[in-house]
Computed example of a mutant assay.
Amino acid sequence: MESFLGFFEELTTLQKLAWVIGCLSFFWILEGYYTFSKKSYKKWRHALSNAAFMGFTMLINVVFGILTVGVFVWTNQQEFGLLYLFELPVILELLIALLVLDFIAQYGVHYLLHKVPAMWRLHIIHHSDKNVDVTTGTRHHPLDFVLRETFALLAVFITGMPVAFYLFYRILSVLFTYWTHANIQLPAKLDKALSYVIVTPTLHKFHHHREMPWTDTNFGNMFSIWDRFFGTFLYDDPSKIVYGVDIADHLDDQHVGVQLGIPFNKSVRSKKASTM
């Protein structure tokens, strides 16, 4: 197990980038064969627009990479964190680390991004995409992504996990981000069965429906257990899903400048609940 985890510590920046591009490419290809939404749109233009947001996140990752190293050095030197309080097999420690990261850095911050008005203004950009596909996974306002990275560091600080655990989580998170946003459809029974434990493509599509209350459901990234436990889980008829977000549908969802201005755009009204 140690050698397996050690592999992730040795990953170069180029290898990590290759993983991101590989996951994007793999699901991009699958979208042509197992399509969920057959709505016609300019796929390459859509991808280039979302790639601009990916560029912002890559720059932010450089800064947070430095901060992350500092946190790991401090927790290791001070032996600070939950995992220092007891001895467990490595596989169990890894599972605990993944669960804490998924809860705090994914479900927790995602829930707050929907419930705290100022944070929601940043998160609207992710929901304003009217053609959700694999590239939507890269679509975040820079400050939205900063909040996500901050919560990830908080999870590291709380657990005191080894850097290998964190890097393994990051690799898995990339995979799940593109898997859940990809415009693919699994056999209905398989998707629903998997959704009892992990987030599936169809499960996450309900979260991207343009109206409340579905917009405020299915916050998980990897594990669906948090949504089930906290009562935010939803699985309904996928044919009812319409992408976008009603409060910003009047804006060009592929104009990067327009989208970056959403948090300050007074024509984007507050979120209101509606019935399905």
Rank of each mutant, 00 (worst) to 15 (best):
F4I: 07
F4D: 04
G6Y: 00
F8D: 07
E9V: 07
E10S: 14
L14W: 14
V20C: 05
G22D: 02
S25M: 09
Y34G: 03
T35Q: 11
S37H: 13
S40P: 09
S40T: 15
Y41M: 06
K42I: 06
H46L: 07
A47F: 13
A47K: 09
G55R: 08
F56H: 09
M58N: 14
N61R: 10
V63Y: 14
L67Y: 06
G70F: 11
F72S: 01
N76Q: 13
Q77A: 10
Q78C: 09
Q78I: 06
Q78L: 11
L82G: 01
L82N: 01
L92C: 13
I96K: 04
A97V: 01
I104H: 02
Y107L: 05
V109D: 00
K115N: 13
V116Y: 07
I125Y: 05
I125A: 13
H126M: 05
H126V: 02
D129L: 00
K130W: 05
D133T: 01
D133I: 00
T135I: 05
T135V: 09
T136S: 09
D144S: 06
F151E: 00
V156T: 06
F157C: 09
F157R: 07
I158M: 09
F165S: 00
L167Y: 13
F168Y: 03
R170K: 15
I171F: 12
S173L: 10
L175H: 08
F176Q: 00
T180M: 05
Q185N: 10
Q185P: 03
P187E: 12
D191M: 04
I198Y: 04
T202K: 04
H208L: 06
H209P: 04
H209F: 10
M212G: 15
N218Y: 03
F229S: 03
K240P: 04
D252N: 13
D253T: 07
Q254D: 08
K266E: 06
K266D: 05
M276S: 15
M276R: 14
